[in-house]
Design a binder for these strands. Structure first.
Lengths: 217, 217
DNA sequence: CAGCATGTTAAACGCTTGTTCAATCCCGTG
DNA sequence: CACGGGATTGAACAAGCGTTTAACATGCTG
């Protein structure tokens, strides 16, 4: 093909368009991105975008599906591999946030897209959240079974609290980076964030930090 | 004026336009709302909207300023009235969420607009978040001074954790309503949410609930 | 080698957008 | 009572939007 990307790139032109759309959608939101901008970013004409995806909305839906699939794959690895390591205050894991940081490259647009999906993706967002909520409920159940957590008065609400706290890092990532000087989804950032959150989970707000770094108790 | 709103309404036409814009912006986002739609909702012509606010962006900025002003007023009442009642695990207050529920009418578009401001309002959102972060830091300081909380290893991060947890309810309101069956910003919803969160804050995830079902103050 | 499906482009189309403009209406003031 | 000025409208405008179309190049298949 003469029209294929110049330098070596094993992705199909179709995939390149999809990736650029994903990036731009995550950055500015689908409404603020034009077909011509996507085409420009992918190095093709506007007509080709429509030719491949039927319409702009068709492209958006395909990106939705793609992101969801990647996310599910991530979740699969997480819950499937070495038993439940999710949300376990004992292990170094701080759940979803850490999962993303570990499974995705540094500047990946995926977190941003998922954020937008969660906040403005009418139906897809609802499905996604329900999925996460069920996961959170099961995780809490496991923690209770293991004696690591109490179900509380209202286990559904407690699971929701845990999920919300987890997602908050995600949704507020940029602002947190701004005021703390560290991206909470980066390795350094999680090293600051996780102990503080797990400290509260372990003994409440009033308990002094326990797992020491400097002070030998 | 013959053109004034039919039924009694003490608001200026200008104010009506501003309010309708606020509502629509909060619902769908400024990019997805047209000047004609705003005009239609306010019962005026598109030209008049521009005449009053210069441009669509001018209108958006004015709504921004208006929302920020109302929010600041709310914050002022909160921090100023009976000393610090904010984030105090002893009182029934669950901070920002409760403040909104108490100071705003039921279907107010303000929470939705603030959410959007926080998540997509480039500079305004940053300023808003910094403001809230400073408030959270001061509140944590007071809790520490009162012996109700420990500063933790990294007080800035601990304050950020508290703020993020608080804002999460806000940002995920619709989804939480969906899975829990109760709006967490309503009176009923807070009655479910607050005890669970405060329970964790009081003794961590593993502690059994302490204050009984209806706590006799 | 003919032929056909596919990838691709440039140009054009129709529609919606934000904005401008001239005209009209009404009130307050001199 | 004239009149000037703000409020208000409907029509018009240019620009940008998503999409359609006709044409062309390319690689595969019989």
């Amino acid at each position: 093909m003469l029209y294929m990307r110049s330098t070596q790139d094993d992705r199909t032109t179709r995939a390149v368009i999809r990736d650029e759309a994903l990036r731009l959608f995550a950055e500015r939101g689908p409404e603020s991105v034009t077909v011509r901008q996507i085409a420009g970013a992918a190095g093709v004409s506007a007509g080709l975008v429509v030719h491949h995806f039927g319409s702009k909305d068709g492209l958006r839906q395909e990106v939705d599906q793609y992101v969801l699939a990647v996310f599910e794959a991530m979740l699969g690895e997480l819950t499937g591999e070495g038993g439940q390591e999710l949300l376990d205050p004992g292990a170094g894991s701080a759940s979803l946030s850490e999962a993303f940081a570990r499974h995705l490259p540094a500047g990946s647009p995926l977190p941003g897209y998922l954020r937008r999906l969660l906040l403005t993706g009418a139906d897809t967002g609802r499905v996604l959240f329900r999925r996460l909520f069920e996961l959170s409920r099961r995780t809490l159940d496991e923690l209770v079974a293991a004696g690591t957590a109490d179900p509380g008065r209202d286990p559904a609400v407690r699971a929701a609290v845990l999920l919300a706290n987890d997602l908050a890092v995600f949704l507020l990532r940029d602002h947190l980076t701004d005021v703390l000087g560290t991206d909470p989804l980066s390795v350094d950032g999680m090293a600051r964030w996780a102990p503080e959150l797990l400290g509260v989970y372990a003994g409440g707000l009033n308990a002094a930090p326990q797992g020491e770094a400097p002070p030998p108790r």
